[in-house]
Design a binder for these strands. Structure first.
Lengths: 349, 349
DNA sequence: GCATCTTCCATTAACGTTAATGTCCGCGAC
DNA sequence: GTCGCGGACATTAACGTTAATGGAAGATGC
């Protein structure tokens, strides 16, 4: 039943050959007669031989495996990223070891240890950000690392991400062009570069247009970072914050939200006050989630090339793995594009 | 720079000990003096020794790795499932090798080969369904397999999934209770058990209530299964089908959709005809996606315990890995629950 | 004081694979 | 006839770890 897994040795003994000859025959190397090769292949087929990657990796010094460390797969953006990484990695012949950190620095530290032990060839990671940098250990161990989506301050790591600043800038410029003057942002309360980038882009656009950015214009939505694994709370949280906003006398005439879930909470709060989108308030999302184009009204949003980020990061990582030169850190920023829909389009009749 | 990775041998030579002594010292085994143990641990720390899992796995015959095969991570359900599997797997000390099939039988066959080569201890898989059963190869190789979410007809595999039939039954009963009589379904055009289960539950509820189920009541939304990796097309596809439905003379007074994306397309088609939800048509979703509670109107939907399915599947798999008895296949069905929201609630004033 | 038991470590072998050498044999060249 | 050469295989070693066995020195028993 649970018969031992067949090895090269089984084939060798059955055919009266040496193990090495069998190995070379199956690997398609020279110094093997056509007859022997045929025999070996037939026997391998017959007993269902499958090479053992562990042993192979041990002697070759490479497991053809990449580590992929994600904070949470439930985020649609990361879900697509995972997809891109897996597909592109497979193209290069690599397998994916998936680790989830749940935004916890402790788990992240453990993940680094796991990757070191597993002797992966390279690592793609979305860092938790905030505390120390556990990723340097990979560097000293000689394992290439490419950070994805979030960069770390040191700046010494390779990085592939999205120009969040530009995306927010474009969205803000668009809102201004649509006539908005008092524009506010709704952002999650996390110390990560993606959020900082969006706020910077927002400020830049406002400043260039000569519009003021009062302190209250950047509202933070309280996060429950470590409480729950999934993300369904995001609309609720933004709803609470949005309720407070819509009641104010200096209510904004446009709101940029950090992700499209937030737009849902905002939509609800606005609807409850009888405020219409876009007539009374423009709403601009970020991420262009699959549902965004089908909301009422359809939501203008910044589309993020998640899949492409994953694929590009893999390409860079594989390049690093192949020629282990200590080239200077490379930073790749993919550009998002604004998808304009009715939530930000005033029908000027 | 790219110094060779330190091994047990490095520690042994530095301390004038044998490799085996070092191994036993670090493993916390007996027959090692306290003094030696301290020395070994200190030296290991100093040179940054990390055990090599490959070598370890080779001799122990177990890599402490599980394979996870998913059709597409972009589906919110699978995203959460992945999350549950990873977290629960880690609790048991296992790493996750992630493979994505994109609903392709060819890729799936390749995935099985990869898993065999990688010598994983067990496999969790969402099978593509439709053609042959490539998973039997794992069985003959002695690798435990637990199918997740979709079962295969043979019935010989372990399986952990959701009682889709019950979920659809509950939703249908609820719709009937809300006064609906002409109830239709909108389902993806795929030959998979999850969809068949939903249709069966729908039919059962209708039959029990003495309501007819004409052929046209089960509408299929054309799928683009292999065309595109992501899923954002789902609302569009359902929108097209829904347009045809709302124009009919025998328009249904309630519609059950196969997933909440479909509800978006339906909402739009209804709104364009000036039909109101729930007043003119009740809408019931499936999956309870994160956005569903925040649509206008909030969508009644069947909530699926995706995370729990993943965790439960891991538990079963780990049990199979530990005691490799050839026990009969086990089938676990987790029960979904209906989340009632305004889209199916007639306000009888 | 000799046998016996512990304690603590070394030696050997094994996991399954690949790379580097060795070896035998037949054949053509001169 | 001998030399050299290349084809086709075998032998040996290595990857880094763990398990099984071996053995030397000191402690203990009487």
């Amino acid at each position: 039943m649970t018969a031992r897994r067949p090895t090269l040795r089984d084939i060798a003994e059955a055919l009266g050959l040496s193990v090495n000859t069998v190995s070379r025959a199956l690997a398609g190397k020279s110094d093997i007669s056509a007859r022997t090769r045929r025999l070996v292949e037939a026997e391998a087929q017959r007993i269902g031989y499958v090479p053992n990657t562990l042993a192979r990796s041990l002697v070759l010094g490479s497991a053809m495996t990449l580590g992929l460390v994600i904070t949470t797969p439930s985020n649609p953006f990361y879900a697509q990223l995972i997809h891109g990484v897996e597909v592109q990695g497979r193209k290069h012949g690599y397998s994916m070891l998936l680790l989830v950190t749940d935004e916890s620095e402790d788990i992240e530290k453990g993940a680094v240890e796991s990757l070191l032990r597993a002797a992966v060839d390279g690592v793609l990671a979305v860092p938790v950000q905030g505390g120390a940098d556990p990723w340097q250990r990979l560097g000293t161990a000689g394992i290439p690392l490419v950070l994805v989506n979030r960069d770390l301050p040191a700046g010494r790591h390779d990085f592939v991400g999205i120009d969040y600043e530009q995306g927010a800038y474009d969205a803000t410029v668009h809102a201004i062009g649509a006539g908005a003057r008092r524009i506010w942002m709704l952002e999650e309360d996390l110390p990560i570069t993606t959020i900082a980038g969006r706020i910077a882009g927002f400020r830049r656009a406002m400043t260039e247009a000569g519009l003021p950015v009062p302190d209250e214009a950047v509202r933070s939505v309280p996060t429950r970072r470590h409480e729950s694994a999934a993300l369904p709370w995001q609309p609720e949280e933004s709803y609470v914050v949005a309720q407070e906003i819509v009641d104010r006398a200096d209510r904004p005439d446009a709101v940029l939200v950090g992700n499209d879930y937030f737009a849902l909470g905002l939509y609800r709060a606005l609807a409850e006050r009888g405020l219409r989108v876009p007539d009374d308030v423009l709403v601009l999302g970020y991420g262009d989630f699959p549902f965004s184009g089908f909301l009422t009204p359809p939501l203008t949003s910044v589309r993020l090339p998640a899949y492409e980020v994953g694929a590009s990061a893999v390409d860079l990582l594989v390049e690093r793995v192949r020629n282990r030169s200590s080239a200077p850190a490379q930073k790749r920023l993919l550009r998002p594009d604004l998808v304009v829909r009715p939530s930000s389009t005033l029908v000027t009749s």
